[in-house]
């Protein structure tokens, strides 16, 4: 038996159908065969959904947030050093403290360390491309990394993914889980990318970082800001 009941825990707002992509995005060809065919069944949130995995500061090693240092073998990684920082909030603007953020990305040549990546671009012996951190009490996070590059993929003839960083977040409950990708401002490939374009207008911009001179560090790295918004609380308790 649990010593809390679902009455003691907040319910969470549903997926926002205006900002979230559909399961099937026609121009993203693999979505046709890799998504459920029938509509999902609405589920009243129970303890199972209102609780969630707890990974706090103990889950993070000292260099996990610094991708320019956590994969080094004999020198510094090649490419443009950047800082990516932001705040994790919910829809009501509440900061989300102590939440784990995991990121992964390709290197400055457009090549992932993943053994399944067959793109003919060099790997970098000093860049791994994975990292994580936990948000502080104001929900803030900060990564240091190398700007990833575009790379080709097989979705359609001459298809190239815009440079992006993958983000994975837990938030306070099982239902606040979010996996997304963040893109760089002004990238001409965005308009040609069916994954990015699968997000409804006008909310695609929520996936694009802002260049921020305040974050940029003199003589060291360009700074980008990317705030992340998770599902908020329900306006009224579920039971009423």
């Amino acid at each position: 038996m649990s010593d809390t009941s679902s009455r003691d825990l907040p319910g969470y707002a549903p997926f926002d159908p205006e900002t979230q992509p559909n399961w099937v995005v026609p121009d993203y060809h693999s979505s046709a065969s890799r998504s459920p065919g029938r509509p999902a069944i609405p589920l009243v949130q129970t303890l199972s959904e209102l609780t969630g995995p707890v990974y706090g500061h103990g889950a993070v090693q000292p260099l996990d947030h610094d991708l320019t240092r956590n994969g080094v073998t004999d020198g510094a990684p090649l490419g443009e050093r950047i800082i990516v920082t932001g705040q994790v909030l919910d829809e009501d603007g509440r900061a989300q403290p102590d939440t784990l953020i995991e990121i992964w990305q390709c290197n400055s040549a457009g090549r992932y360390i993943h053994t399944a990546d067959r793109h003919d671009a060099p790997t970098d012996p000093n860049f791994f491309g994975g990292g994580r951190c936990v948000t502080d009490e104001q929900g803030r996070y900060r990564f240091i990394t190398i700007k990833p590059a575009a790379y080709p993929w097989g979705n359609h003839p001459n298809a190239w993914r815009p440079a992006h960083i993958h983000f994975s977040l837990f938030g306070p409950a099982f239902v606040t889980r979010l996996v997304t990708q963040s893109y760089f401002p002004g990238d001409p490939l965005l308009a040609h990318d069916p994954i990015y374009m699968g997000t409804p207008v006008p909310f695609r911009d929520l996936l694009v970082m802002d260049y921020d001179p305040e974050v940029t560090e003199e003589g060291f790295a360009l700074g980008y800001r990317f705030d992340i918004v998770l599902r908020g609380r329900r306006a009224t308790p579920l039971e009423d």
Binding site: D16, Q20, H166, T180, Y196, T199, L207, V229
Partner: peptide, 11 residues
């Protein structure tokens, strides 16, 4: 009020 960050595929 903020809008939810859109999900994107895990790839």
């Amino acid at each position: 009020r903020r809008r939810q960050t859109p999900s994107q595929t895990v790839g």
